[in-house]
Amino acid sequence: MASINPYLNFPGNTEEAFNFYKSVFGGEFITLQRFGKMPGCDGGEVSAADQEKIMHIALPIGGNVLMGTDALESMGQQLADGNNFSISVNADSEAEADKLFAALSAGGSIQMPLEKAFWGAYFGALKDKFGIQWMINYDYGQK
């Protein structure tokens, strides 16, 4: 079965964001590449200030991988706040849902508190301190 691997773009703080996500979910980065270490990026293609920015980072979470990059204005990339998508996490229990929701919402804003939803799940939505939208869900029928 195919897996969904969200790819997030940040305005220069990808490393901070991914260290936060790692503190929430655990695990280790399977990839961490900086612009300055990539072929073609060390000869003036990327400004000295952007050499240490993240070109690609990947953090396994369950059977999926959360990936990200720094969008570099010096390369003509422009970002809007991450309000055009959400990342949905399906927890294994209410307790896990509570833990993830509390950790991700720290410093952010709760859009919908965790509560029993009409579709037979425990569900909540939030925006984390980096402007990324998350949906936390536990289906009561799952084992």
Rank of each mutant, 00 (worst) to 15 (best):
I87K: 06
S86A: 15
D81A: 15
Q33C: 09
G27S: 09
M135P: 05
P60C: 05
K53N: 10
E45S: 14
G40Y: 10
N9E: 11
C41P: 01
H56I: 08
Q142M: 14
A125Q: 13
Q33W: 14
S86Y: 04
E16V: 05
A121I: 00
Y138V: 05
V89H: 07
I54F: 09
F18P: 04
I30G: 03
A58G: 13
L114A: 08
G141C: 07
K143Q: 13
L100D: 02
M112A: 10
G36T: 07
Q133M: 10
E15K: 14
A58T: 04
K116A: 07
D128I: 03
F10G: 02
K37A: 15
A2V: 13
K127V: 14
L79D: 11
A103L: 12
N5C: 11
G44W: 08
G120R: 12
I4Y: 10
V65S: 09
G40T: 09
G131C: 08
P60N: 12
M75V: 06
L79E: 04
E15W: 03
P113E: 12
I54T: 13
E96S: 11
I54E: 09
N83S: 11
Y122L: 09
L104P: 00
D92S: 14
A95Q: 14
V65K: 14
P6N: 03
Y21I: 08
G44N: 04
